[in-house]
Design a binder for these strands. Structure first.
Length: 600
DNA sequence: CGCACTATGAAACTCATC
DNA sequence: GATGAGTTTCATAGTGCG
């Protein structure tokens, strides 16, 4: 599969004449052009005017405000507008309902509205807008232009399919190709251009709303520093009121229940298109930047994510969100039940565990471990105090902080150590030595394990499939990693008929292949390396040969979402995490092919 | 070159308190 | 409800070593 078509030149952006239509229509490109061209003073009044009108205040009110306060002081204008509108007790129209992204001048309005913020002195509100202000330009631009180019060249040779024609039309209308593909999957192959365009409008408007999600509660200092805090707060609250309540994390984080804590009478209803086969199961980190789960949920048929912390299944925490259309009644856990505390999981550590370390659960297992140097520093800090006595509080604090941060356990007097890879395997529910040998380094083992499912948690959710598919399942496993879903199904005693596994990392594919052979599977394991090349043709081929899929499972990369990432926590549009859209694309395509082949 | 180690904070949450 | 302190987080880029 590696030798496939465009693998080599994906990174080469070829801005030939073929792409001119895209250059002209690309909103990101347009922003830059307009911003530079509009810097003259003559434009500033209309800019300021448009800006506040864009926020939803009426033309008349904004004219009056500018008249009263002058053109330069946006803060005063805003205060004036807020005061006036609150006196009238008629909140201004919201941006999201005021402008129409479908209108012909969408490309003009939308970028200007955002770029204007740069010249606006209200830092707080600017901050609120920025994270989503330039959603997917840099991250997906290369991919888009490559696809677009391909379509254009196909069009030139007159060999476009109906689907590709629609895609090209939408791209020519200025929609990112990737989103157009999603719209096509979501609306079905028969959808008319108008319907698709409506869908894309809705998605873009929804993203706009995300931009305005205020985080005032979380930035009190930030807001208090302003001179007109109450007005600003009021402004943000007004925005908040019309915006759908953002998804919040449950406490305790048990989703629809865990073996030790059952909710009474849980019931949920799913949309028809969400219920349609196959079953699917999508996973990612619970603590994402704001709005990410709203977006994921919106793309996955508006199913509300089930947030579960694996500390209810294991001795280590793992807070994750799962979007799925599985039944939620009659789940059962894997047997044997794994140890639920550190002391049960590591009985030998009890002897060395100090009284002043109160932990009984480990924190989330990540991809890196503490170095030997750090454990050495901890040892020497502890050895400075005389034996039998508790170390001073300051030392205790330091040691506890490091232990929590790096998930250290006690392995001797004054000795802490990071978990061994096989211990991590056990905590995550994998067989011992699952990731060992076969050319994988220690660092890679930690990395692969840190990126994996907690098997017991996932198995609990998937257990409902056992009665539904007594003869086994066909599984499409995206971003398989070290095969958490496969291991979970196997441990549940659900026969794996055909598993199509897509995983970029070769060492991970080798691990799954090796596990597959060692567990004497009678089914067939087919693996691919790149979700982006897993296109409709291939999906049709595979479904044609094995019959439909019963389950599409996967957790797309979290590295741009995870809190530990100090470098590129870019949200869902980040380089890796945007692969979520491929999960959606593939799921939609599978649904569509199965519908057409009457597997449904 | 592969591997191990190190330095690099902020976002978003929980919880106690007022 | 508002506030503030405290806690947790599927990581990345650069460096050095053998």
């Amino acid at each position: 599969m590696d030798e496939n078509v465009s693998g080599g030149d994906v990174s080469d952006v070829d801005w030939t004449t073929d792409d001119e239509s895209e250059i002209n229509l690309n909103p990101v490109t347009t922003i830059v052009g307009n911003e530079e061209a509009c810097s003259s003073r003559s434009a500033s009044r209309s800019k300021m005017f448009d800006h506040f009108v864009g926020m939803g205040f009426s033309d008349k009110l904004v004219s009056k405000a500018i008249e009263e306060n002058g053109e330069e002081d946006s803060d005063s204008i805003l205060n004036w507008l807020l005061t006036f509108s609150s006196l009238e007790d008629s909140p201004p129209q919201q941006l999201s309902t005021n402008f129409d992204p479908c209108s012909s001048d969408y490309n003009e309005i939308f970028p200007n509205d955002l770029s204007d913020m740069d010249s606006w002195s209200d830092d707080e509100i600017e901050d609120c807008l920025k994270p989503n202000g330039a959603p997917n330009g840099a991250a997906n631009g290369v991919y888009r232009s490559e696809k677009h180019k391909m379509l254009l060249s196909l069009a030139a040779s007159g060999s476009l399919t109906e689907r590709e024609e629609k895609l090209l039309s939408l791209a020519d209308m200025g929609y990112p190709l990737e989103e157009a593909e999603i719209a096509l999957e979501r609306c079905g192959p028969k959808a008319l251009i108008g319907e698709l365009s409506d869908f894309l409008c809705a998605a873009q408007m929804a993203r706009e709303e995300d931009c305005y999600l205020p985080d005032d509660d979380l930035k009190p200092k930030h807001l208090l520093s302003g001179s007109s805090k109450s007005k600003k707060r009021k402004f943000l609250e007004m925005k908040k009121n019309v915006i759908e309540e953002s998804i919040r994390l449950p406490n305790p984080m048990i989703g629809y229940g865990v073996p030790s804590m059952q909710l009474e009478r849980v019931h949920r209803s799913l949309r028809d298109d969400a219920r349609a086969p196959p079953y699917f199961y999508y996973e990612n980190v619970a603590l994402t930047p704001k709005g990410v789960w709203d977006t994921i949920s919106r793309f996955l048929y508006d199913i509300e994510p089930e947030f579960v912390d694996s500390k209810f299944f294991s001795a280590c925490a793992r807070k994750r969100g799962y979007v799925h259309n599985l039944p939620i009644e009659n789940r059962f856990p894997l047997i044997p039940l794994p140890p639920l505390t550190i002391q049960q999981a590591f009985p030998l550590s009890k002897r060395w565990w100090p009284r002043w370390d109160p932990r009984d659960k480990l924190n989330c297992i990540q991809t890196a471990i503490a170095s030997a140097k750090l454990t050495e520093r901890i040892r020497s800090a502890l050895e400075r105090v005389e034996s039998e006595a508790d170390p001073p509080e300051s030392v205790q604090r330091y040691v506890m902080e490091q232990c929590r941060k790096w998930n250290l356990v006690w392995v001797g007097r004054n000795k802490v150590a990071p978990l061994e890879p096989d211990e991590v395997e056990m905590l995550l529910g994998f067989p011992k030595n699952h990731t060992r040998g076969g050319g994988i380094s220690r660092t890679d083992r930690y990395k692969s394990l840190g990126n994996s499912f907690q098997v017991d948690t996932v198995a609990y959710h998937l257990s409902v499939l056992k009665d539904i598919y007594p003869n086994g399942v066909n599984v499409l496993s995206l971003f398989s990693g070290i095969g958490g879903a496969e291991v979970a199904l196997h441990r549940l005693g659900i026969k794996l008929k055909n598993v199509v596994s897509i995983e970029k990392s070769k060492v991970n594919r080798d691990i799954v292949r090796s596990w597959w052979e060692q567990t004497n599977q009678t089914g067939m394991l087919i693996d691919f390396d790149d979700v982006q090349q897993f296109d409709d043709t291939r999906i049709e081929q595979i479904i044609g040969s094995i019959g439909g899929f019963d389950l599409v499972v996967g957790g797309s990369p979290c590295n741009n979402l995870a809190g530990s990432n100090r470098v590129s926590r870019d949200g869902l549009e980040g380089k890796e995490s945007s692969l979520f859209y491929d999960y959606f694309r593939i799921l939609g395509s599978v649904k569509s092919v199965m519908r057409n082949n009457r597997f449904a």
